[in-house]
Design a binder for these strands. Structure first.
Lengths: 124, 124
DNA sequence: CTTTCTGTTATACTGTAACTATAACAGATA
DNA sequence: TATCTGTTATAGTTACAGTATAACAGAAAG
């Protein structure tokens, strides 16, 4: 698993970490049952503090993407809840699409963009 | 223009304000050339500090949604730059779709969601 | 010209969140 | 026993959000 943190980003490190792990799962580079590196190990690899990794893992656990196994550590385990996910996504999409809409990005443009992104994601 | 601020949200007030104004524009409830309330007036209406409104307006100016006219104040003025907007949107969509994808939300589901949101937006 | 609106800028303070730094504890594994 | 794991606690720094005044300059209206 390759993690790239942008230390100049205005996005918090633990959020970048969470996002990238979610993308890894969606892209099927991480699979159900895979173990994530230990918090100490990943922290050292990236060059950040253990607690920052721990926070990312905690968020992923709370959001239902991993479960914590005392023996193995953090394990990819998706808790699917389509209904809630749809509502969440709609809220997130609403602002992003508004910005595009003001810039004359058409519905067709967005559909094409969605298709492009789905090309990267093999999770089924 | 109706603004609803959630003071319990983890989203900054000036970001909520910015987002709602962008949505208002996309939904054609605010049009090119419309003036926004003065920073002092809107701050009083919402019950927040002038500088928080000022920050939202500054962000909107920097992002090319309004321009500041000394005589009229903040005026809706879209600076369309489709290419940059497409790349920005793709980055924003990538994480949102990854989350959905893990929850077995299909490409068709997302397309339907996009259509729903576009129903709200009349800006052309 | 004066008053009053506008945006803009500067300064200072509080509160909170992000991040780091140690440290310690308990369970699992070799 | 030694070493790995997650978990928790505490403390410190840094940065940002938000508030509070204050002042300045340009524009508009009296």
């Amino acid at each position: 698993m390759i993690i790239e943190i942008d230390f100049n980003s205005d996005e918090a490190i633990y959020i970048q970490l969470r996002n990238q792990i979610i993308v890894e799962i969606a892209a099927a580079r991480l699979h159900e049952g895979d173990t994530l590196p230990s918090v100490r190990q990943l922290a050292e690899t990236i060059g950040i503090n253990m607690h920052t990794v721990n926070k990312a893992y905690s968020v992923l656990k709370q959001e239902g993407f991993v479960s914590i196994d005392r023996r193995k550590g953090a394990v990819v385990a998706i808790d699917p809840n389509k209904v809630i996910a749809m509502e969440e996504m709609k809220d997130e999409l609403r602002v992003a699409l508004a910005k595009g809409c003001c810039r004359n990005i058409s519905k067709a443009d967005v559909h094409a963009l969605v298709d492009e992104i789905f090309e990267e994601y093999q999770y089924q």
